[in-house]
Simulated scan of single mutants.
Amino acid sequence: MPFDPQSLNYDANGLIPAIAQDALSGDVLMMAWMNAQSIARTLETGRVTYWSRSRQSFWAKGETSGHVQTLREMRIDCDRDCLLLLVDQEGPACHTNRRSCFYTALRQGEEVEILKPMEG
């Protein structure tokens, strides 16, 4: 049976959280929002496209930075209200020039930086 993006459980704004994970290393890279149209675009093109809540528009990851995410596989959680995107990431995934948006950790009650910006 063909997949229908409308079969997912979106929030009141028509959005669903999508977690991008490096397909090879397993590193969690980022979280962003998608809607039915951005999911359809991603599946059609193979390039991950999100919905920007601040700009109220689509953004294909890497369209301005060159740090493209290519979809390997899309997974749907058991409640159909969250997506896991297994991706090939070119360069940093975070706008801070880090490999992952999750670059701070709480350790012994302190917030510490665990990833430095990438060189180049």
Score class of each variant (00 low, 15 high):
45 T>I: 03
50 Y>W: 04
55 R>P: 05
77 D>Q: 03
84 L>Y: 02
37 Q>E: 14
6 Q>E: 14
80 R>Q: 09
84 L>V: 05
93 A>D: 05
103 Y>P: 09
19 I>L: 13
26 G>D: 10
86 L>Y: 05
68 V>H: 03
81 D>Q: 13
48 V>G: 02
82 C>H: 01
21 Q>H: 07
50 Y>N: 06
14 G>L: 07
29 L>E: 06
15 L>C: 09
89 Q>F: 06
47 R>W: 08
43 L>I: 09
56 Q>L: 06
119 E>V: 13
87 V>A: 05
49 T>A: 05
62 G>D: 01
33 W>K: 06
38 S>H: 01
68 V>E: 06
68 V>G: 01
83 L>W: 00
42 T>I: 09
15 L>F: 10
46 G>L: 02
45 T>L: 06
32 A>W: 13
101 C>G: 08
70 T>E: 08
94 C>I: 09
111 E>W: 15
49 T>S: 10
18 A>G: 01
49 T>L: 10
63 E>V: 05
67 H>R: 03
88 D>L: 05
72 R>V: 08
86 L>S: 06
117 P>L: 15
67 H>L: 02
21 Q>K: 08
101 C>H: 11
60 A>T: 14
25 S>I: 08
65 S>K: 01
8 L>G: 00
10 Y>C: 05
96 T>Y: 10
25 S>W: 12
93 A>M: 06
61 K>N: 06
44 E>F: 03
68 V>A: 02
89 Q>C: 06
84 L>P: 01
42 T>Q: 09
10 Y>E: 00
83 L>M: 01
27 D>S: 13
91 G>F: 07
60 A>I: 03
43 L>Y: 03
75 R>K: 10
24 L>K: 15
28 V>R: 04
3 F>E: 05
119 E>K: 13
115 L>Y: 15
44 E>M: 05
19 I>Y: 00
58 F>M: 07
70 T>I: 05
3 F>Q: 10
112 V>T: 14
88 D>G: 03
18 A>V: 05
67 H>M: 02
33 W>M: 12
92 P>T: 02
9 N>S: 14
20 A>F: 02
74 M>N: 00
69 Q>R: 04
100 S>T: 15
63 E>Q: 13
37 Q>R: 12
41 R>L: 15
76 I>S: 01
57 S>G: 11
95 H>V: 01
24 L>H: 14
2 P>F: 11
85 L>T: 00
8 L>D: 02
107 R>T: 12
112 V>D: 13
16 I>T: 03
118 M>G: 13
62 G>T: 00
97 N>W: 09
43 L>E: 09
61 K>V: 02
89 Q>K: 06
44 E>K: 14
94 C>Q: 09
27 D>K: 15
90 E>I: 14
48 V>N: 03
75 R>D: 00
91 G>N: 04
52 S>M: 08
29 L>C: 08
22 D>M: 01
84 L>I: 02
105 A>S: 13
1 M>R: 13
91 G>D: 11
8 L>F: 05
113 E>D: 15
3 F>T: 09
2 P>R: 14
48 V>H: 07
26 G>F: 11
102 F>Q: 10
25 S>D: 07
95 H>M: 07
42 T>G: 07
80 R>M: 04
87 V>D: 03
15 L>Y: 12
85 L>N: 00
97 N>L: 09
26 G>S: 11
30 M>V: 00
15 L>S: 04
